[in-house]
Write a protein that binds this DNA or RNA. Structure first.
Lengths: 229, 229
DNA sequence: GTCTATACAGAGATAGAC
DNA sequence: GTCTATCTCTGTATAGAC
């Protein structure tokens, strides 16, 4: 969709639109590449080629590689917030996070969400192969991760029985940590265990069973204490 | 095991010993660096400096960076096999894998084991920031991971009630996958969630509870079916 | 076997014409 | 705003003296 230059009239809006489109093209190309190749594996040259724009344009829109990735993460986080705006219990969360890994349903598991999962791995602090300890990308990601975590805790809290959350206020946090660990763990598994291909739907169910078992345990204890009074 | 030629004196054993020591120094330096900096983050120059040997010596002992890391993984795998030779149930496995992450007890969680965990992340196939798809290091790691997985399944099987494994033979595999996912997930968590520092001992216990709950569920079903006959 | 110097490639980033 | 040419730095790997 390129566009001829014009010298007079209403070029302002057009130029602005062209610039915006270029920016989006660059971000889109970066997203595609980063999901596949990671942070270090995504070169600015490759972004330039994939976007169809020369390297100079990439650096015109983004100060450097770090800023490009910060912008990319922000874009992905915006998408995440839209997608995860509704209520979401443990089972649904695990289903999305684990079963979605098969990549069967792109509606359920967007490229943007895949990138955020991948970023979790880049951010491994003792793993500078990804992001440097003091990287702005890392800082941006950790901020987002913290926010996503809090949002998850809120939604998990809402999905739990009232007596459980009353008696054990910390249980929602614990369950969120567990479900996050499980989805991250299966992400690693999904991408490294080439031979053994798992039925992720089945494991999502198993994981949900396991966590629901924990909830049931807490509920039982809450009920018992209630009786003793 | 290469060997210098010599014509006199008892330098033979000495030279051999020196060569072996150099090799070990290089591997040791690579281990220290790789655990912290990852595959790409560990440069041959850094290995050279840390080992105290010049870059030429590093390349004399190892053909290239890939072969160095293959050798390193093999070393770590040997250590793993020694450490994990005894029986190991679900709870113990999770305790080692999750509680060990705090790094409190180096006896329980060796540098070698930490490297194998880190390698799981490097091997992410869609994450070439770590290892290339066709990397020999990646192939070596996946082979080891498969072997470790099978060993885990054997030990988990031994730790389960006999009636459960008889009725549901696949349950040991499922539990092994779940525990692997949990340990990998907590590894990611441990290294990225800087603000929220978790009590990993507590979460190891919670994870064990969750999986034991699953076992109990299978046991109940096995018992019920037994009765109905 | 050990070491120094260096070749070579790839990646991030900039200059400056258009 | 867009593009080409190029600089610089870093990292892998090799050549060859000792």
């Amino acid at each position: 969709m390129k566009q001829g230059t014009r010298q007079d009239g209403d070029t302002r809006g057009t130029r602005q639109a062209r610039s915006d489109r270029s920016r989006e093209q660059i971000l889109g190309a970066a997203l595609d590449l980063a999901v596949v190749h990671g942070y270090q594996g995504t070169t600015m040259a490759a972004v330039s080629t994939a976007s169809g724009l020369p390297i100079g344009s990439v650096y015109w829109h983004f100060k450097n590689k770090e800023q490009l990735f910060v912008a990319l993460l922000e874009h992905c986080y915006e998408v995440w917030k839209e997608v995860h705006s509704g209520p979401e219990g443990l089972r649904r969360k695990l289903s999305r996070g684990i079963a979605g890994l098969s990549g069967a349903d792109p509606e359920q598991y967007t490229k943007e969400e895949a990138l955020l999962k991948a970023a979790a791995v880049w951010a491994l602090s003792r793993q500078l192969g990804g992001l440097a300890e003091d990287s702005e990308v890392r800082a941006a990601y950790l901020r987002m991760r913290a926010e996503m975590f809090r949002a998850d805790v809120r939604r998990i809290t809402e999905s739990l029985p009232a007596d459980v959350t009353r008696r054990f206020p910390e249980v929602a946090t614990k369950l969120t940590v567990m479900s996050l660990a499980l989805t991250d763990g299966f992400y690693v598994h999904a991408n490294s265990e080439v031979h053994l291909d798992l039925d992720f739907g089945e494991y999502a169910d198993l994981a949900a069973q396991a966590l629901e078992g924990l909830v049931a345990g807490f509920a039982r204890r809450a009920a018992e204490e209630e009786q003793q009074r």
